[in-house]
Amino acid sequence: MGETGYYLGIDVGSVSTNLVIIDEEDKVLEKLYIRTSGQPINALRNGMKTLTNRLNTNNIHIKGVGTTGSGRQLASVILGADIVKNEITTHAVAAQKMVPGVKTILEIGGQDSKIIVLRNGVIYDFAMNTVCAAGTGSFLDRQASRLEIPIEEFGGYALRSTSPVRIAGRCAVFAESDMIHKQQTGHSTEDIINGLCEALVRNYLNNLAKSKEILEPIVFQGGVAANVGIVAAFERALGKKIVIPKYHDVMGAFGAALIAKEEMTRKNTKSNFYGFGTTENEYKAKSVECQDCSNMCEVIEISANSEVIARWGDRCGKWSELDGSSEQVG
């Protein structure tokens, strides 16, 4: 074909939906960070629209699409993805590209946090928060709005702290109670925010990173890496330098694009991508509990312009195999 190709990576997360377009040299042509606001389909539509407006998409030949994040399956159905990959793998791939030889990845996103340990260029071990989401982006967001400070400036406050305040960081709800208590006893906002940053880092290192060997180079990514207060707290706690990659907020999408490129180059087939205009369709998602057996699977059904385009969530394959038929679930 000869024509230069591009690869699209999409990360649909709980808090943000990110899109990245890379070229054949793995260079980022465009990146977007959009708030999901609980409506992933809308976020995708906005993202595609913005890309269409910013770039001359007629001349952009997308050779492969990769989706990741908790909404990876939904995004894949709507856009026609070539690969669907979990966010742990995509984050690791992206970090290795940006910081060759990286040995530890700290990642804090909207509602999850993870630590990925790499040795000799391979994921060696990882951990992801399970029963608790204290100390993730959503919580910081909430505290910033409670203190009426824009989230972008939140970390800066921590850096201006002059005396340490210890905040209980094990549980997000109790951390908030403790912050309110510290406000009432007259501590400055700067000190409290710094205390909060330290509490979150302490929580992360004690729970998630326990018994993991944190070796340099250390990369810190995810939306929370933009918070200079948390970065400083990590550096103090570890006594090591932390690298924030250039595209720290869209690493999942970047990784998905890289994996899509690798896969499509290997397979040498045409992409499933439906085109930038596809999100103009009227999408509807609904979920129904199948009553046909005792498994009671929650079947998710996505339709475009009232035509069913995909179903998943069933264990027996009865619904997911009915591709594109007009039969309705339930």
Binding site: S70, N86, I88, D125
Partner: peptide, 12 residues
């Protein structure tokens, strides 16, 4: 979340 961990483990 459970599936994400299993998939990542298999990749590993």
């Amino acid at each position: 979340g459970y599936v994400t961990r299993i998939e990542a483990f298999v990749d590993l």
